[in-house]
Write a protein that binds this DNA or RNA. Structure first.
Lengths: 333, 333
DNA sequence: CGGTCCGCATTCAACGTTGTAGATGATCGG
DNA sequence: CCGATCATCTACAACGTTGAATGCGGACCG
């Protein structure tokens, strides 16, 4: 049985509350008492019981992180950064994988464990506007990604429209004429926004949008990128560039291209979004839009911590994270 | 303020304990009472306070998962599978990233949050035998990976010596003569075991171990594989095959080879261990040893759950997970 | 018909912690 | 030298839950 305040108090010859005061750095404890108590704490290897503390204070210092999956590089990196950022602020992260399922996304924020967490960071794919409202009433939530723009909760994301526009423009400036888009899926807002950016760039350059070059497919993983690229290669006039919703699809697409004997970037340039590590070491290396993931994680945790501490008075904040175009081999020099 | 048993009891016109009995499926509650209570629970959106329950029962149904990092594909996949397996058993996972640091690995299992978790699954890189003993005394721990073999705690891993031996033998059978090894690092037991397997295979084939072909480097990430391969290419007689400690290094190595104009697999065959998804979609696709990750995660959670329920009476169990050789393009057909 | 058992519900206490209010001396200003 | 102020410590209650013990009828048995 682990030692409790009572045991420490008995050993140090003081009251329970005094030990509690020492543990919590309450200032008015004499140096001698503090020393005696600390000695007893060390001797008994006392560790505060977090359940009891949580019950008493109503705070657990636990936050939930709800992601579609954990084994996609982008989400793995985000999870990693969120865990670190939370740790720096004395918070512990509890991870949920929702699979992009609406039911599970709701449960992650309101479910059985809701009374255990102080708040949640969620990267939803399927939550509705109304879900968010209901959830926010219970606990603070910070949303990641582009599923929502202006909604009643704190929100952190890059400007996906602009990012996709910049990427597409870059391909145009490299002289590419037939630029395909892989990953359109109107149900997912992220995809819709990136498609919009793609179309904006084409129109701004005086080109028309060719529906045959837009592949609507999901989920946004390697296989889908692979299949989509194969489909594009079967066209009578295949594209000379492919812009993918994310790096994962881009890697799948590149694989399909190379397998089919198409040279990247000479025959087809490829570009993605996310800047996952795999892209930096593939052959060829992948050009991409690199969101400031570290900032996204830090800001999300900060916003949530603020909300937890301050209550829900302030209006929800919408933070645009930075991003950067990174040109590598897959688009030529 | 969230509803408590008290509120539900008041609304249903029963005692607090009766509500508790309903919530916990205590059998001797009449059908009518149960219905009334359930109605009140629904009406008030009652959710049990897990801190209070944890305090009272001494169980939180939380387990810690301590991994070196979360953003390496192998660990991300393991984390994903552990989270799913835990969820199926009513457990919630709380993730720690230790960076392979001994201090942090210990804290993950015994630290501040130790009183919050019922047990831990840990994939240590630096923990000592003594650490394990101390930690096990406090809470059940299940160890993953090869840092330890027979130690006073439950343990799940593939037979790394055999896996490395099989992989190396496969390269030999393909006619490769100068097989290099990337990732020797005697401080890390996993590396030592895989190096042993590599040496065993060479000796069994009547070949000598050439120290110049063994690259001692760490940590085991892409860049290190990249650098190690460059080093190997600078040898007067470069290798015709490279066996890497893990897939991540193998991918880095392949990148270096291709960049330097070496053809994979014609000039140099490459092989790794882990079967991470990136390897299945790179160019060329990566041959590897595929550990049964799903089983590893499920067994680890099962062992831990058993230990939590049953106490620590039984002797520690050592489970060898299965693995499979997967030959892809990077070693030729 | 008296006693026993069973189903159902309740009361009580305790898990370990911390906020509030108050007790106890010592010190200080006037 | 006395009331006020201060530093230091403590007693008490409460957070929401559940295990143990108990109460209370009705059914069953001999």
């Amino acid at each position: 049985m682990a030692a409790s305040l009572k045991d420490v108090a008995a050993m140090a010859g003081v009251s329970i509350k005094t030990v509690s005061n020492v543990v919590n750095d309450y200032p008015f404890v004499s140096v001698q008492t503090r020393a005696r108590v600390n000695a007893a704490i060390k001797e008994l290897e006392y560790q505060p019981n977090l359940s009891a503390r949580g019950l008493r204070t109503g705070r657990s210092n636990l936050i939930a992180l709800a992601l579609p999956v954990l084994d996609e590089p982008y989400f793995a990196e985000i999870a990693s950064l969120v865990v670190y950022a939370a740790e720096e602020r004395g918070l512990t992260v509890l991870i949920d994988q929702t699979g992009g399922d609406r039911q599970r996304e709701r449960q992650a924020a309101e479910g059985v464990r809701a009374n255990l967490i102080d708040g949640a960071i969620s990267s939803p794919l399927a939550l509705t506007q109304k879900d968010i409202e209901v959830l926010t009433r219970r606990r603070p939530i910070v949303l990641l990604g582009e599923q929502f723009s202006a909604v009643g909760a704190d929100h952190v994301a890059i400007d996906s429209v602009a990012a996709a526009r910049d990427a597409t423009s870059a391909l145009l400036e490299l002289g590419r004429r037939r630029i395909a888009f892989i990953g359109a899926d109107t149900k997912v807002n992220t995809a819709a926004q990136r498609l919009t950016g793609y179309e904006q760039a084409l129109r701004a350059a005086g080109r028309t949008v060719d529906e045959r070059l837009i592949i609507r497919i999901g989920p946004f993983r390697r296989v889908q990128g692979y299949q989509a690229a194969q489909e594009l290669l079967r066209l009578r006039r295949p594209p000379d560039a492919i812009f993918c919703l994310n790096d994962l699809m881009a890697l799948g697409a590149m694989r399909a291209l190379i397998e089919a004997g198409a040279r990247v970037p000479q025959d087809v340039a490829v570009m993605g979004i996310d800047d996952i590590e795999d892209g930096r070491f593939g052959s060829p290396t992948l050009s991409t839009v690199s969101p400031d993931k570290r900032a996204i994680a830090a800001i999300a945790v900060d916003l949530l911590a603020l909300r937890i501490r301050g209550g829900s008075d302030d209006p929800p904040r919408d933070v645009a994270a930075g991003y950067q175009l990174v040109m590598r081999e897959s688009t030529g020099s």
